[in-house]
Computed example of a mutant assay.
Amino acid sequence: MILSIQNISKSYGNIKALNGVSFEVPQGAIFGVLGPNGSGKTTLLSIVVDVLKADNGSFLWFGQPGSPDTRKKIGTLLETPNFYHYLSAFNNLKITNSISSRGNISDINLVLEKVKLQERKDSRFSTYSLGMKQRLAIAGALLGSPQVLVLDEPTNGLDPVGIAEIRDLIKELSLAGHTIIMASHLLDEVEKVCTHVAILKKGTLLMTGAVDDVLIDNDIVEISASDNDSLVNILRSYNGYDQVILEKGFVQIHLPKGSARPEEINAFCFSKGITLNHLVIKKKRLEAKFFELTNN
């Protein structure tokens, strides 16, 4: 495991920012820390990169406690990037290199190439789009060739084009061998980019694991008949459903992803003496799943 977090807690006065959070980040993952604003994401990332100190709990990087050598393997972007607007990308990264002592001057062209800013390296920062500015910030985090990148809301405030650029960049960096840990409050971002996820709500870990397991999408078959109450009753004996509910004049059968067989449902109802007048397959939106997890 690249990162193991054990029972981390953090309070600010009476506010419990983190409440015994534990999970592990496997090597090579794009790991999303997902939750609404105020769920403790930034606090957690700040603790594991030694910006904040936890009240309780511990964490291990590469199986070891944090150390100066360990921190050299981790590139971070936790705040809005601060660059000099009148300087070029190259000269801004020279200053970043000087302050952080990460990498050397020869690394600058390499990281600019990685984030696809090589052709604009001599352009002033003030001429960059928001997406380009964020890519330059990630370039700064890449100085010194870290094994791990820790990114806090890397697409925050970007337009759709900028978001797509950062998503593609994160995937490319992962393919190049970097493990990436990123916080986000956007489910769509995590679904499209991440391989693993931990979901936080008010400092408490709700679920963690592979994205396909945690954010699994249910099949929904929506049906109706002249007597929906009777329809609900007979469906209780139908095999394989997760949930049967009556909603807005229709009966919804929730089933495990990929298991919906509408022809079987129709035949089952007919065998019980009920003729359906409506049958539609729906997909339960992942946003609804996330809403359920974070609002119960």
Score class of each variant (00 low, 15 high):
residue 165 E to N: 06
residue 165 E to G: 06
residue 165 E to D: 15
residue 165 E to W: 08
residue 165 E to C: 00
residue 166 I to R: 04
residue 166 I to T: 09
residue 167 R to M: 04
residue 168 D to P: 08
residue 169 L to Q: 09
residue 170 I to P: 09
residue 171 K to S: 13
residue 172 E to M: 03
residue 173 L to F: 10
residue 173 L to R: 06
residue 174 S to P: 01
residue 174 S to F: 04
residue 174 S to K: 12
residue 178 H to S: 14
residue 179 T to P: 04
residue 179 T to Y: 11
residue 180 I to D: 06
residue 180 I to Y: 11
residue 180 I to K: 06
residue 181 I to A: 00
residue 181 I to P: 01
residue 182 M to C: 02
residue 183 A to L: 01
residue 184 S to Q: 06
residue 184 S to M: 03
residue 185 H to I: 05
residue 185 H to Q: 11
residue 186 L to G: 03
residue 187 L to R: 02
residue 187 L to T: 13
residue 187 L to Q: 12
residue 187 L to W: 08
residue 188 D to I: 07
residue 188 D to C: 01
residue 188 D to T: 14
residue 188 D to G: 09
residue 189 E to M: 09
residue 190 V to K: 01
residue 191 E to K: 09
residue 191 E to Q: 12
residue 191 E to V: 15
residue 191 E to G: 02
residue 192 K to A: 10
residue 192 K to E: 04
residue 193 V to N: 00
residue 194 C to P: 13
residue 194 C to R: 04
residue 194 C to K: 02
residue 195 T to E: 03
residue 195 T to S: 12
residue 196 H to E: 08
residue 197 V to Y: 07
residue 197 V to N: 02
residue 198 A to K: 08
residue 198 A to D: 01
residue 199 I to K: 04
residue 199 I to A: 00
residue 199 I to R: 01
residue 199 I to F: 07
residue 200 L to D: 03
residue 200 L to P: 04
residue 202 K to S: 15
residue 203 G to L: 05
residue 205 L to P: 01
residue 206 L to I: 15
residue 206 L to S: 10
residue 206 L to Q: 07
residue 207 M to S: 14
residue 207 M to C: 06
residue 208 T to V: 02
residue 212 D to V: 11
residue 213 D to E: 15
residue 213 D to Y: 09
residue 214 V to D: 03
residue 215 L to T: 07
residue 216 I to F: 12
residue 217 D to V: 14
residue 218 N to C: 00
residue 219 D to R: 00
residue 219 D to C: 05
residue 220 I to A: 00
residue 220 I to D: 00
residue 221 V to A: 05
residue 222 E to N: 05
residue 222 E to M: 07
residue 223 I to Q: 04
residue 225 A to N: 09
residue 225 A to P: 00
residue 226 S to C: 05
residue 226 S to I: 14
residue 227 D to V: 08
residue 227 D to G: 04
residue 227 D to E: 04
residue 229 D to C: 01
residue 229 D to E: 15
residue 231 L to Q: 10
residue 231 L to W: 12
residue 231 L to P: 08
residue 232 V to H: 08
residue 232 V to M: 10
residue 233 N to Y: 09
residue 233 N to F: 06
residue 234 I to P: 14
residue 234 I to N: 11
residue 234 I to A: 02
residue 235 L to M: 14
residue 235 L to T: 11
residue 237 S to Q: 13
residue 238 Y to T: 08
residue 238 Y to D: 09
residue 238 Y to G: 10
residue 243 Q to C: 09
residue 244 V to E: 06
residue 244 V to R: 02
residue 245 I to A: 15
residue 245 I to T: 15
residue 246 L to I: 11
residue 246 L to S: 15
residue 246 L to E: 12
residue 246 L to T: 08
residue 246 L to W: 13
residue 246 L to Q: 09
residue 247 E to R: 14
residue 247 E to D: 15
residue 247 E to T: 11
residue 249 G to M: 08
residue 249 G to D: 11
residue 251 V to K: 04
residue 251 V to R: 02
residue 251 V to D: 07
residue 252 Q to M: 06
residue 253 I to K: 05
residue 253 I to F: 08
residue 254 H to E: 06
residue 254 H to F: 13
residue 254 H to G: 00
residue 254 H to Q: 12
residue 255 L to S: 07
residue 255 L to H: 07
residue 256 P to T: 11
residue 257 K to H: 14
residue 257 K to N: 15
residue 258 G to F: 03
residue 259 S to H: 05
residue 259 S to C: 02
residue 260 A to K: 02
residue 261 R to T: 03
residue 261 R to P: 00
residue 261 R to Q: 06
residue 262 P to E: 03
residue 262 P to W: 04
